[in-house]
Amino acid sequence: MVYFEFPKHSFRTWTAAIITFLIAMAGEYHQSLTGGRTPSFQDVMLGTADAIV
């Protein structure tokens, strides 16, 4: 979606990675509020690495 919104934006890969990082952080925060689940910063970094690749 970022590629369609910012077609001439030279840092669109990094923009996608930052958006993915923020969404992953929000997801892990939500997971910390859910009983029986634990948040992991490694999950956030794995998702961000996927967005970069």
Rank of each mutant, 00 (worst) to 15 (best):
21 F>E: 07
36 G>N: 05
28 E>Y: 01
12 R>T: 14
19 I>S: 05
20 T>D: 02
36 G>I: 09
11 F>M: 12
51 A>M: 06
16 A>F: 13
8 K>R: 13
27 G>S: 11
22 L>I: 04
37 R>P: 03
32 S>T: 08
30 H>G: 11
45 M>A: 11
26 A>K: 07
38 T>Q: 09
22 L>G: 06
26 A>N: 03
12 R>Q: 14
47 G>W: 13
24 A>N: 07
37 R>H: 12
23 I>A: 11
38 T>H: 02
28 E>C: 04
4 F>N: 08
22 L>V: 08
17 A>C: 14
3 Y>T: 09
33 L>Q: 13
18 I>G: 02
39 P>V: 05
46 L>F: 13
3 Y>F: 12
21 F>S: 00
37 R>S: 09
3 Y>W: 15
9 H>N: 06
15 T>W: 06
26 A>V: 00
23 I>N: 01
35 G>I: 00
49 A>L: 06
20 T>N: 01
17 A>L: 00
17 A>V: 14
3 Y>N: 12
26 A>F: 00
2 V>W: 00
27 G>M: 12
5 E>P: 02
45 M>Y: 15
17 A>E: 01
24 A>P: 03
22 L>C: 00
24 A>S: 12
41 F>L: 15
15 T>E: 02
40 S>M: 09
9 H>E: 10
13 T>H: 08
31 Q>N: 13
46 L>T: 15
17 A>M: 14
28 E>W: 06
9 H>L: 00
7 P>W: 08
10 S>K: 12
14 W>E: 00
52 I>N: 05
47 G>Q: 13
25 M>E: 07
50 D>T: 10
12 R>S: 15
15 T>M: 08
21 F>C: 06
44 V>F: 05
35 G>A: 04
2 V>N: 05
52 I>L: 15
21 F>I: 06
35 G>D: 02
18 I>A: 10
2 V>M: 05
41 F>D: 07
7 P>Q: 05
51 A>V: 05
10 S>Y: 10
44 V>Q: 02
16 A>N: 12
15 T>D: 04
10 S>N: 05
17 A>I: 08
40 S>I: 06
14 W>G: 05
42 Q>D: 10
8 K>A: 15
22 L>K: 05
24 A>C: 10
35 G>M: 00
42 Q>F: 10
23 I>S: 09
52 I>M: 04
31 Q>T: 11
